[in-house]
Design a protein around this nucleic acid. Sequence first.
DNA 1: TGAATAGTGTCTATTAGACAATATAAG
DNA 2: CTTATATTGTCTAATAGACACTATTCA
Lengths: 238, 238
Amino acid sequence: MSWQIPRVAVAVDLAVLTVRNDRLQILLVERAIKPFRGMFALPGGFLASKEEDLEVAAARELAEETGLEPRPLHLEQMRTYGAPDRDPRGRVLTVCYLAVVPNLPLPVPGGDARAARWTPVDAVLNSEVAMAFDHREIIADAVERARSKLEYTTLGAAFCAAPFTISELRHVYETVWGHKLDSRNFHRKITSVDGFLVSTGERTKRDGGRPAALYRPGGARLMHPPILRSAGSSPWAG
Amino acid sequence: MSWQIPRVAVAVDLAVLTVRNDRLQILLVERAIKPFRGMFALPGGFLASKEEDLEVAAARELAEETGLEPRPLHLEQMRTYGAPDRDPRGRVLTVCYLAVVPNLPLPVPGGDARAARWTPVDAVLNSEVAMAFDHREIIADAVERARSKLEYTTLGAAFCAAPFTISELRHVYETVWGHKLDSRNFHRKITSVDGFLVSTGERTKRDGGRPAALYRPGGARLMHPPILRSAGSSPWAG
DNA sequence: TGAATAGTGTCTATTAGACAATATAAG
DNA sequence: CTTATATTGTCTAATAGACACTATTCA
């Protein structure tokens, strides 16, 4: 079976999203080598060996390129990009993964990690950042996937470091969707979804204002019925 | 860039779904060659050349293996499967596509087409059919994807040959979801979604019963708000 | 006390689901 | 007419969204 079958290089790329400074941001690396040198790209790389599993490669790249540990709360395969001309070096298929992480300290360049930086997705989608390959379209897909999944899954919790408050979770929704939500209706809705949040019994110590209850993610992955983003929202002011 | 990068064989597989004889069915081919010979598999195959686009390969395989023409109303990339041991011949990555087609005449084997047959997905998922590779899991993913997409997209129309009636569309929903829907509420809901259906002005000639209005698919791809499958349904009797 | 944030209660417009009633065909 | 299917209408329970109000902290 190995005679005339074409074999292609396979890469794994990561769209790592977080909410940081009131903006949805994505982790980018500056390319140090030739095609698109000096431009920005998604962290990723070729399979380490012919036997490496895709998910393993994705987790490895995330750690290698960014120093991010422990593993993200959420890592899912998104889509495979395979246009014949997407890489000037030749045919490269890239299997893209969507990762969602809390607002972590910026990884320090050096060592194994390349220079990785958080960049607001708006800047990328508005073409204010020079992107390598077809990575701008990939990022657009990733953002839309994340926005959509907030509606009907518990993905939002993956943006929050546990334990977190309902306000923090709402802030994630508002930032990713780009518009304000009513805090009281959001509170009622979220707490009514079975298995989304588990109360820790603890409360925040605030500097003014009533302390908020702290939660960690529950086991539920799907939210039913969903929170739909289109209806009943005020325009974003932040 | 071509020195130590591992290169792998890339295949494209198709999960082609239709509604036929009141059941959700999938197109399978019987394997004529060695790994898993005599077992059933999804139609598909390796990239024809190192330059072939993935979507093009998917469309080509569909025509080649099944004789199905013209192209399906719906063809979308679903997921890439890449477990290192999923193919005993060596590392093979398969990019899977979900296709949805109307109830077409069974393709005739012979010529370019291999022996392809429609098989109820229940039989596959209940392990009543011997499946090659990891194709049973792929089919489970495809079925879940289709069930889910009926909720919030206009995918259901892709199961119907235009022009079609609202009853035919409802029958698709009932068959894919496995439970009855209220015909009157369904009618009201579907016709209220802007761009889902376009009336042709024609009506069916029935053999008893009021003639039904005929529609063709509108341009809309998303349905908002969605029709959720969990709520308010009577158990399936057919 | 006042400012700030968390959380609960209430009202209303909309929607989903059950189901009655009417419309239009074939025998 | 009866049977069969399509389509419209009506009622009701549940839900989403707006928003008043209470609760609990800090200064």
